[in-house]
Design a protein around this nucleic acid. Structure first.
Lengths: 339, 339
DNA sequence: TATTAACACGAAACCGTTTTCGTGATATTT
DNA sequence: AAATATCACGAAAACGGTTTCGTGTTAATA
């Protein structure tokens, strides 16, 4: 086991000062050719690499970014992380991932843990509990300290910071409109409670499309699940009593499960009943029939978030201007609707 | 924007020395009640939190662990991360995630980036390219430096370190045996090339089960895909020419896709043909029919890996003993086989 | 009263860098 | 030959903590 070598070690060995070694390795003009070559050769030989922690302390820059998300076993967040990681890595940053698991307390603890010097900025998506409580003091404290924050997907307007979302309302609007254009009459929505910013926006888009059409809104055609968890029973009851001919679901799982239920009843997809979900994950692609979805472009979202954050981190200017980027969703047509 | 307060600030404000403040905050016996109360009150008021980087530099401990995996958009790895994150967090560690994206170079770069002080240890699963090249010098360099490494799932015997795997061979053996016991005669295997340690082990289990039975091995019943990527055409051809009555797949996607293919041909699952896959992900659960799988218990694996790593990191002893933990897979019975 | 112990605190080293500034030794200019 | 410029390097501060050791003051002991 050969321990890491430090500047001090090189200095001692070569009988020069630490400063000389440091400068020589940086190819400083101050140092003579001879000395530089000697030092660099020695450093290469012993595979010297500067200690990141020491540099972080000196620079007050860690080159780490903290990502706090509610859940990682969820295709959308997973793609966002990938986007963040790719972009951040290309710019020399590392990604520290923390999971809030939809818990307010965990979110707070994680942020406090990271805010004491471990990271240069946060990229996060709010936990459902946080959105429910609408308590954003932990975010405000962090921004007050001058740590940049980028909020994505599950955001809030109560905090001033950069934000990245997709136009969920538009996505739902277009999906619903697709159903209407295809002559569907009984268009249902399976969503979660409104405190989730995304569900709220999607519901709004669904309503707007129906209001603009001749169909109008039938409140009984909207099923609000208390959480993101599947409640198989209530979906079953809902589908049986309302007999929709088209269903928009705010995620993949609701959609795929619903498809199976109606297929068991002998209905044909998409002839008798069509489905559109949100999130373009593996499930949608490999479902039977494959599921038409509103794609959220998670990877793109991650990239954009990372770029916004790093740009802010590296900008000297202390401008207090924040922007909200709205990405366009796309409808990925598959076999769960006619085409 | 109120900047972070430091020990120095408190010391100046209270007209005591930095050492006194430091000790007072640690409730040291050395400091008088009066001073301690004064300092602690002031610290609380200004919300003092020690700077993690400074502590890391002093202690030569970062409380960060580096996780290097090939891919995050993959249910299994995702669950492993969750297990790692949960366990590590509970012990006060943060998780830095790096993606090799199945690339040897990226794996090397990521490790070098983290090995210079950013982390206390690695948890990793080898990229397919690394397993293919069988070049493990980057791992050896890291372990030589005394940085603990835990390898999980995709491992190698060329590196001395702690390892966590599931008994892939056993999983495949039992799955195949299940088919045999159910009277299946033409049992196929869809796998990837052997350089992936897991595929190799699974193939071995499949072979052992058949050898022990009266059926024996028919090499044409084994399809080796060149990578983890889906090649839809070769699967189709394979299924059509060989007409198996049972198929074991080394992942979910191969299985789900194959199921759809045979269903399109009018075959009934599980009567005409049965399927078992590996990895208990969302796909398996929501496939139609739901897919019987060999569950790999990713979250457990993550926990175990994290425990092994942190225990080693925190153990003073420089014992050079390494262990390999083998977790038992479980067969999760669903509708793609008779039961 | 002289000596010692206990107390409460500060100085300084240290972790591994970077960077500013100072300086002795040459080299150049007048 | 004296003054100045250039070169090549080292000392030291700084980043923000922790920790060892030393020390002045007071209290207890001989």
């Amino acid at each position: 086991m050969k321990a890491k070598i430090t500047l001090k070690d090189i200095a001692r060995e070569l009988e020069v000062s630490i400063s000389t070694v440091s400068k020589a390795l940086k190819n400083s003009e101050e140092i003579s050719r001879d000395t530089k070559e000697k030092v660099q050769a020695f450093a290469k030989l012993y595979n010297y690499k500067p200690n990141n922690i020491a540099i972080s302390l000196k620079n007050k820059r860690t080159k780490n970014i903290g990502v706090v998300i509610p859940d990682i076993v969820h295709h959308f967040f997973t793609t966002v992380i990938r986007g963040i990681e790719k972009y951040a890595n290309a710019r020399g940053y590392n990604v520290i991932v923390c999971l809030s698991e939809e818990s307010f307390d965990k979110e707070v603890i994680n942020m406090e843990m990271l805010a004491n010097g471990s990271i240069d900025g946060f990229i996060m998506s709010l936990s459902s509990e946080t959105q429910q409580k609408a308590d954003y003091n932990h975010l405000k404290e962090v921004t007050d300290q001058g740590i940049p924050v980028v909020l994505f997907d599950r955001i809030t307007n109560e905090v001033e910071c950069d934000k990245v979302i997709i136009d969920d309302e538009l996505g739902a609007y277009e999906a619903t409109k697709k159903f209407i254009d295809q002559g569907k009459k009984r268009i249902a929505l399976i969503t979660t409670d409104d405190y989730l910013s995304v569900s709220k926006a999607r519901t709004k888009g669904y309503r707007r499309a129906l209001e603009e059409s001749s169909l109008g809104i039938d409140e009984s055609m909207i099923l609000k699940m208390p959480s993101m968890e599947m409640d198989e029973g209530s979906i079953k009851t809902f589908l049986n009593t309302n007999e929709p001919d088209a269903v928009l679901c705010v995620n993949e799982i609701f959609a795929v499960y619903s498809m199976r239920l109606v297929q068991e009843k002998g209905l044909k997809i998409p002839e008798d009943i069509s489905f559109i979900g949100f999130t373009d994950g593996v499930l949608s692609k490999y479902a039977n029939p494959s599921l038409t979805v509103v794609a959220q472009h998670g990877e793109k979202m991650g990239e954009v978030s990372a770029k916004m954050l790093i740009d802010k981190v590296e900008s000297e200017a202390e401008e207090e201007t924040y922007q909200t980027k709205i990405l366009e969703p796309t409808l990925v047509i598959r076999d769960s609707i006619a085409h």
